[in-house]
Design a protein around this nucleic acid. Structure first.
Lengths: 200, 200
DNA sequence: ATACTCCGTTAACACTGTTATAAAATATAA
DNA sequence: TTATATTTTATAACAGTGTTAACGGAGTAT
């Protein structure tokens, strides 16, 4: 009875065909414009067949999210194994993480739910510049008082902001719960570390 | 001729009515489910009137983004002014930033294009746990070799990951450009600072 | 009173995810 | 081989979405 086997094989082929077509569409036009109908047209089948292989559109996206995390883990791990001492490992891993994010932007944006307001959108928001400016001034004073007054305050601002934004978004993703602001050891850990280093 | 003034006033009132209705809808059901038709129904006008006040849906969202950055700047600045020395200022500002993000999650998510995969979605991705586990193991070794072996590796992981994610997403938002991985002073700055502190 | 400019409407276009229903193709049993 | 049962595929619809063209009516200006 090779019939059942053939059917299973065909089912698997169809599944990967859907994923491959979807991926091509994403590479061409981004996540925002991906649609079930476009996938159906690409694989030259009608729309409902897709629903025989995936419960809904989110299931397709979830599949890619999984693939993304697999690949991220693999690349970071490889970078780690190329180094011997722990400090170099952590730095190499950070670099690998960064490389993954920008070499596979589509993956990264999906994995972390980044709608990505385009560069134009951001530049239109003058209010963002006020914010940057305000924080930079504080950092400038801190740097002036430190033992390394040549440090670039904009570099430090970028770092400071990134730490804050990273803390917030990772927290938002991992826990929906409302958090007591007075109980944030991670925030304390990261910020006090940053400040200590700034003043050293 | 008070007529022209009255018309201008009415136009302004309509504009704020649209924004207020939109805001209520967002508070009730989130950004994802906000639609022009729902706004129209809420203000008891037909759909096209909205297009007389805003070019399109994005223009409405942009308005809220602006408001968000204004409010964020204000709250962070107030927190800054309550402190005297720079270190306390930077820490208070970080706390204010954090508070803003979680007290006005809708604003924050819009401002940074966070689609926010829900907690359930994230938990379904087992691959995320592999990643976490892998990194935690490296941190555990680093902590064991440091002079503070009692430090929680999961706390440090959370910090490490947040720094990386923050760097990446801020970079993705502010510059569309493809970046040369060998030229990332901010990444160097943040990660080497983290590692130094970890080993101290 | 006539012409004209707004303001607001209805109705449509071109999409989206999802699904009920019907038909065609295939597999099984007689 | 024929007839029945099963699975696979397609058509067409539902309920939404953003956006806009076309039309009506009220208020203003000449």
């Amino acid at each position: 009875m090779g019939i059942a086997e053939r059917k299973l094989r065909q089912k698997e082929e169809m599944r990967t065909a859907i994923l491959e077509a979807a991926w091509q569409l994403v590479l061409a036009d981004g996540w925002q414009s991906l649609s079930i109908r476009k996938i159906a047209e690409a694989i030259e089948y009608s729309v409902p067949v897709i629903y025989h292989h995936f419960e809904n559109k989110d299931a397709i996206l979830l599949e890619f999210t999984r693939q993304g995390f697999q690949q991220l883990t693999q690349e970071v791990e490889e970078a780690c194994q190329k180094e011997s001492d722990v400090a170099s490992q952590l730095e190499a891993m950070a670099q690998a993480y960064w490389n993954f994010a920008f070499n596979h932007q589509e993956y990264y944006q999906l994995m972390f739910g980044l709608g990505i307001p385009t560069c134009e959108t951001v530049n239109r928001v003058a209010e963002m510049k006020s914010f940057s400016h305000m924080v930079v001034e504080v950092l400038r004073r801190a740097i002036a008082r430190s033992s390394h007054p040549e440090v670039d305050p904009w570099l430090k601002f970028h770092t400071y902001w990134s730490i804050l934004h990273g803390l917030v978004s990772i927290q938002m993703i991992s826990k929906q719960a409302i958090v007591d602001p007075r109980n944030q050891p991670v925030l304390q850990d990261a910020v006090s570390g940053f400040v200590k280093l700034l003043q050293s």
